[in-house]
Amino acid sequence: MPIKKRDFIAGAAATLLMAASIGTASAQMELKILAPAAPGGGWDGTARAMQQVLTATGIGKSVQVNNIPGAGGAIGLAQFVNTAKGDPNQIMVNGFVMVGSLITNKSPVNLGMVTPIARITAEAEVIVVPATSPIKDAKDLVAAMKADLAKVTFAGGSAGGVDHILAGLLAGTVGLDGSKVNYVPFSGGGEALAAMLSGRVTAGISGWGEFEGQIKAGKLRAIALATPDRLKDNPTPTLKEQGINLELINWRSVMAAPGITADQKKAISDVIDKMVKSKEWKEVLVQRGWDDAYLPEPAFGEFLKTEQVRVEAVLKSVGLVK
């Protein structure tokens, strides 16, 4: 069984392409991207992927990534609000999780204080059960929850995060008490998976990518996606198809500094627009398994407001916020 170099090459071809296209520049912009997370996390990954694409395509000149981790992004946001004011060359990466963490951490700064630019990527949320589970679809799950809410244990990511919020929304949508949902936060997908495969918990909630391999290998059954529509080449039905009126995606977005002019906002929006439409960005999306969820202004600002209202309500219902 010889190693096929072709396989290796296919994997890294995208990167090489990127390197080749350096220097096709037009209106270049110097940018500083703030990732309000430690190097290595999701927001950092997004910021560094943007840096990669912006420099490779020549859309941006000297793009710098700056990490300010802490408190689910609240510390980075506070710093951004305070020091980047009026600076048209600074942007910040953030996402759905920050909406919740700002509320639970009682942050003095909020997303209304920065200038929204666009939603760029998203990851689909999926509800899974072990392959051996008697639960076959979302209706079975809801029926089990209605029978005994305490006994239906959900494994997922951190408390107050997107998985937890989906569990709370699900209970609320079908008319159950969100604060009685037995949601068990795990530190990682491995632990959550073990809890499911060993039959300790009833169901799991996570991003699609996390358990994709297990679903394809037939160890977990994907019973519902929380996306508005089905994913491409994916037979998993949505919650809506199964009569549960609930949509939730784990999105990431770009924000600009507070107090910039309309022209400056447009300049940044144009840069992001060019970036998400580049072939290099599309390749990054495929490599990382991110879905394109590009939503520019002014629609994004409206979207953000409704998300804030919804998240605050569900955090109250699950008892995380009084």
Binding site: G213, K216, A217, Q287, R288
Partner: peptide, 10 residues
């Protein structure tokens, strides 16, 4: 993943 290697059960 950059090297085209997608870890998983398969």
């Amino acid at each position: 993943q950059q090297f085209g290697l997608n870890p998983g059960p398969l």
